[in-house]
């Protein structure tokens, strides 16, 4: 599935929620799921510090696809990370670099990606793109 298709799938899912409670309960349930990253990877090198919550992000290039794992100490942040990974994980570096991320806006969670929130999410999205860019260069040169 392309990144675009996955984004549209998430948007369709969120269209079913009537109010903020349902929406956040869903995000929280995603956040409560098993860790999205190996404990061993929750190291200083992988940390993205926000003022409000911390995010850990790791990326590997496996068979030409970028595999992301990430985590956060805040559940809502983690729930949104889980959506982000669902949309971007297992895609080619090129697609990740080029694709616009519009689903967060569409599902009404834009406020969480505001730099003023300082929850580490904005930097995480930037970092995901940076990893993809680095892998893209690596593939070209390799």
């Amino acid at each position: 599935m392309s990144i675009k298709e996955r984004q549209n799938e998430v948007i369709d899912e969120f269209a079913m929620f009537d109010d903020w409670m349902d929406k956040y309960e869903y995000i929280i349930s995603l956040g409560k799921e098993l860790p999205l990253i190996d404990e061993g990877k929750k190291v200083e090198k992988n940390i993205i510090k926000g003022c409000q919550s911390r995010v850990w992000l790791d990326a590997q290039l496996i068979d030409g696809k970028v595999r992301f794992t990430a985590d956060s100490d805040a559940i809502i942040t983690k729930g949104i990370i889980s959506l982000m990974i669902r949309v971007l994980d297992d895609s080619s570096p090129e697609e990740i670099v080029n694709e616009d991320l519009y689903f967060i806006d569409e599902i009404g969670l834009k406020e969480h990606l505001s730099p003023t929130r300082s929850n580490g999410l904005v930097s995480m999205v930037k970092q995901m793109k940076m990893y993809a860019l680095a892998f893209q260069t690596q593939l070209k040169n390799g």
Binding site: W20, Y24, I28, Q52, A74
Partner: peptide, 21 residues
């Protein structure tokens, strides 16, 4: 409970508090 999560949810209920350090 993480302070950020609590802050986000009580804001949805109209309550403005500060969270963080």
């Amino acid at each position: 409970v993480h302070a950020y999560d609590l802050g986000v949810l009580v804001d949805k209920m109209g309550v403005a508090v500060r969270t963080g350090h």
